[in-house]
Design a protein around this nucleic acid. Structure first.
Lengths: 148, 148
DNA sequence: CGAAATTTGTTGCATTTGTAACGATCGGAT
DNA sequence: ATCCGATCGTTACAAATGCAACAAATTTCG
C-alpha cells in the first residue's frame, strides 16, 4: 500500500534533495563567484588541487564528481588565470600533472576559511541533535547510493 | 578552531548535498525519461498539476521551485503533447489557468506509483534509525534555509 | 612483436539553462 | 479617469552542459 495515487511533491525525497542542494549551492556559490568570479567547476577544481596537491585531470574528476569535459574546461580557465600549471608526465605522455601555482594556492587559502565559515553558519542554527541527524542522514543516503 | 587552512571536499556540506541530489535525481530521472521522454521541468509541472489540480504558471513555479522560464517552456511542451490545457482567466487576462487533460492525468497516474516505488527502494535499504535521521536531517536543513 | 582494445583529454555540436528585456495587463494613488 | 509601478508570461540572447567523435598514447593479449 505504499503507492497512493497522488504524490506530495514537497515530501518526495528526490525533490527535497534537489531543492536543498540548489538552495545551499546557490548561497555558497555567491561567495566564490562574487569574490573571485569562479564558476562551480572551477571552484571544485581549485578545492581538489588545494586538498590533494598534484594530480591528473581524471583524478580530479573522480575526487570532485565532475565529468571530464567540465574538468577540461575548468583547467583551461584556471590556467589562463595563472592559478594552475600543467606538467608533462614522463611516465605517461597522454596526461599532464596539474598543480596550483602560488597565486592559486593563495586564492585557495582565502577561500577555505570562507567555506568553513559558511558551513558553520549553517550548522550553528541547529541544535546538537539536529546536527547529528543531518550528518547521520547524509551518511545513510550516501551508503545506500554506493550500494546501488 | 573551525577554519583550518585545508578543506576536505568530501566532508563539505554543500558538496555532499550536491553529490547526493545529483545521484538520486539522475536515477529517478531515468524513470520518467525512459518511460515518457519527459525532462525534469516537465515532470515537475506534471507532478504539480497532478497534485493541486488547476493553477497558474506562477503558482506552479512556487510549488515546484522552478524559474518562470522553465515553467513556461514545460507548459509549451506538455501542451503540444496534449497533456495540458490552458484556459483564460476571466478575472485576470494576463494569466491562464493550467490543468491536465485526461491523457495528462493518465500519465500522472502511471508515474506516481513509480515515484513512490523509487522512494521505497531507497528507504528500504536503511534501518529504521537511519530513516529517521534522513527525515530529521532534511527537516533541520529545510528549517535553517527558510530562516535564512 | 604487433593488432586490437582501452585510456586520456580536447573539441564540435546540440540541448538546457539563466538573465534581461519586452508587451500586455492589473492595481493603487491621485 | 489616468498615470505609475508591479505582476504575468514569453522570447531573444548568451553561457553552461552533456554527448559523441576524435587523436594520441598506452595496455592487453595472441
Amino acid at each position: 500500500m505504499s503507492g497512493g495515487h497522488r504524490l506530495e511533491l514537497e515530501n518526495f525525497l528526490p525533490y527535497r534533495f534537489n531543492r536543498l542542494a540548489d538552495a545551499v549551492s546557490r548561497d555558497f556559490a555567491r561567495i566564490y563567484r562574487e569574490k573571485f568570479g569562479l564558476t562551480r567547476p572551477e571552484w571544485r577544481l581549485l578545492a581538489t588541487l588545494g586538498q590533494y596537491g598534484t594530480m591528473t585531470a581524471t583524478a580530479v574528476g573522480q575526487h570532485s564528481s565532475m565529468h571530464k569535459t567540465k574538468v577540461s574546461r575548468a583547467v583551461t580557465a584556471l590556467e589562463q588565470r595563472r592559478w594552475l600549471r600543467r606538467t608533462p608526465d614522463p611516465n605517461d605522455r597522454r596526461v599532464e600533472q596539474l598543480a596550483l601555482t602560488r597565486a592559486g594556492e593563495s586564492a585557495y587559502g582565502e577561500l577555505v576559511p570562507l567555506a568553513h565559515g559558511f558551513e558553520q553558519v549553517l550548522l550553528a542554527r541547529m541544535s546538537e541533535r539536529e546536527r547529528s541527524s543531518v550528518l547521520a542522514g547524509l551518511a545513510a543516503i550516501e551508503r545506500v547510493l554506493v550500494d546501488a
